[in-house]
C-alpha cells in the first residue's frame, strides 16, 4: 500500500515549519515519526497534499530538568522517554508507559509530540499526561502559547492545536508521587489498549485518566472526586464510567469496556497506594 502523492518539505527549524504550515494551510500536515500518520495515509484515510517533515528538528529532542517541571521536546522519541534516567526518577509513570507503546520498532521512531497531537483516544501517552496535569507548549505565527492538557482534547483526533501551530514542548510537573500505576489491557503484546488507566497520587491529590473510553483521552473526574471525598479504591472505581462514552468494536462491547474501566481503575488506585 502506497500513500497518495504529496509534496514533501523538510523543515530545518521550528520557524520554517510554521512558515510552511502558514503557506500551505489545510492542505499540509506535519510529519514527525510518521507512525500514526503514514498508516492512515497508506489506507487513504488521510491524503494531505503537502507533508512538512519536522523529524529532523533535533533541537526539539530533549528531556530537561526545568525546576518545578520536566521539559520534554516534542520530537523526543518513545524510546528516549522509556530509557531516560531523569524521567525514571521524576516521572516514572511516563517512562513506564512509553515503554509499553507498540513495540521496539515503533518506539524507535514515534514521538511524544506526535502521540499527543494525534489525539487518538486509544493512545497511551495522552492519558498519562492528563493524569499528571501536564502543559502543552505550542508555537504559531504569532508566537508561543501554553495549553493545559485538560483543555487540549476537543474531539475525535481533534486537539486545540491550530492548523498553523507546531507543538514544541511538553511540561510535566514534578509531583514527588507517592504512588502511580499504568494499567493497559490488551490481548496481544504489541496491541493498543482495549482500555487503559493512568493514575498518580501526589501531594494529597489523585489524577486518573482513561484510554479508549470515549472519543478523546479522558480524565476520570468522578473517580477523582470520589477519592477526594475519602472513598476507598473500590468505591471510587464504581464511578469510573462517569462522563465516558465507550464504543463497541471488534475487541470489546461497550459493557465489557465499562467493566474493564472499573476493574482497571480499582487496580490502578490500589497499585498507587490507595486503600
Amino acid at each position: 500500500m502506497i500513500p497518495a502523492s504529496f509534496d514533501y518539505q523538510r523543515a530545518g527549524s521550528a520557524e520554517e515549519a510554521i512558515a510552511l504550515l502558514t503557506e500551505h494551510g489545510d492542505e499540509a500536515k506535519l510529519l514527525a515519526g510518521g507512525h500514526s500518520l503514514l498508516p492512515l495515509m497508506k489506507l487513504r484515510l488521510a491524503s494531505p497534499s503537502v507533508l512538512i517533515d519536522v523529524g529532523r528538528l533535533d533541537d526539539l529532542r530533549y528531556i530537561r530538568d526545568a525546576g518545578d517541571h520536566i521539559a520534554i521536546g516534542a520530537l523526543t522519541r518513545h524510546r528516549e522517554l522509556e530509557t531516560s534516567a531523569l524521567l525514571a526518577e521524576a516521572a516514572p509513570l511516563l517512562s513506564h508507559a512509553a515503554g509499553h507503546v507498540g513495540d521496539p520498532q515503533v518506539r524507535h521512531r514515534g514521538t511524544i509530540g506526535g502521540s499527543l497531537a494525534h489525539a487518538d483516544p486509544a493512545s497511551d501517552l495522552p492519558a498519562v499526561v492528563l493524569a499528571m496535569g501536564g502543559t502543552i507548549v505550542v508555537q504559531g505565527p504569532s508566537g508561543q502559547r501554553e495549553i493545559a492538557i485538560a483543555d487540549f482534547y476537543i474531539g475525535f483526533l481533534e486537539s486545540a492545536l491550530a492548523p498553523d501551530e507546531l507543538m514544541t514542548e511538553i511540561r510535566i510537573p514534578k509531583l514527588n508521587a507517592e504512588g502511580w500505576s499504568f494499567q493497559k489491557f490488551n490481548r496481544r503484546a504489541q496491541d493498543w489498549a482495549i482500555v487503559g488507566v493512568a493514575a498518580v497520587r501526589a501531594n494529597g491529590s489523585t489524577g486518573v485518566a482513561l484510554v479508549n473510553m470515549g472519543s478523546t483521552p479522558l480524565l476520570a473526574t468522578g473517580v477523582v472526586d470520589a477519592v477526594k471525598s475519602g472513598a476507598t479504591a473500590e468505591q471510587a472505581a464504581e464511578r469510573a464510567t462517569e462522563n465516558t462514552e465507550a464504543q463497541s468494536d471488534i475487541n470489546a462491547s461497550v459493557a465489557y469496556r465499562e467493566h474493564l474501566a472499573r476493574v482497571l481503575v480499582r487496580r490502578a488506585l490500589e497499585e498507587s497506594g490507595l486503600a
Binding site: Y8, R10, L31, G34, H35, L38, P39, D53, G55, R79, P104, Q105, V106, H108, R109
Partner: peptide, 19 residues
C-alpha cells in the same frame, strides 16, 4: 520489513525513503 536506521530497528513499510 525490519531494518536498522542509524543502528536502531525500524519497520521499513512505515517509513518514507525520504525520511
Amino acid at each position: 520489513c525490519t531494518i536498522h536506521v542509524d543502528g536502531e530497528s525500524a519497520k521499513s513499510c512505515t517509513l518514507l525513503a525520504v525520511q
